[in-house]
């Protein structure tokens, strides 16, 4: 069952997504994430993908969308601990080096720098 929970750590919002990241969910997710991109609650968005078990090109497009939006919204965007499935799919489409990837929550920047 797909779900997203949000935690705060300093000025970072951690979006913890569980389940499959596919076309079925991305429209709704984009709306949810846009609130955090446009708001002043956080300076950086961290997408926790450790429990994301399936990622297709629609899900990839969603991640790219956020990454593109972060620049216009003057925010940072990170992927946190991508699952093996996510890591494999991002590598397949040569995006593993495109995103800022954190392996551990301790690496999340604590504030604006």
């Amino acid at each position: 069952m797909e779900s997203m929970k949000v935690d705060k750590k300093g000025q970072a919002c951690i979006l913890r997504y569980s389940g499959e990241l596919t076309l079925e969910v991305i429209d709704s997710l984009k709306d949810q994430v846009e609130e955090y991109l446009s708001g002043s609650e956080c300076m950086s968005l961290v997408m926790d993908l450790s429990k994301t078990v399936f990622l297709d090109s629609s899900g990839i497009g969603f991640l790219v969308h956020i990454n593109n939006r972060k620049t216009t919204k003057n925010k940072e965007f990170y992927l946190l601990a991508p699952s093996p499935q996510v890591h494999k799919t991002l590598s397949l489409v040569k995006l593993i080096d495109f995103f800022n990837i954190l392996e551990d929550e301790d690496e999340i920047p604590s504030g604006s720098e």
């Binding site: 090109s57 790219v64 593109n68 799919t89 397949l92 489409v93 995006l95």
Partner: peptide, 19 residues
């Protein structure tokens, strides 16, 4: 052909071809 990194679409056929 693999899409440019900033492209949100167009990766489906590339994924198929690689797998």
């Amino acid at each position: 052909v693999c899409s440019d990194p900033q492209d949100e679409f167009g990766r489906g056929l590339f994924i198929i071809s690689r797998l």
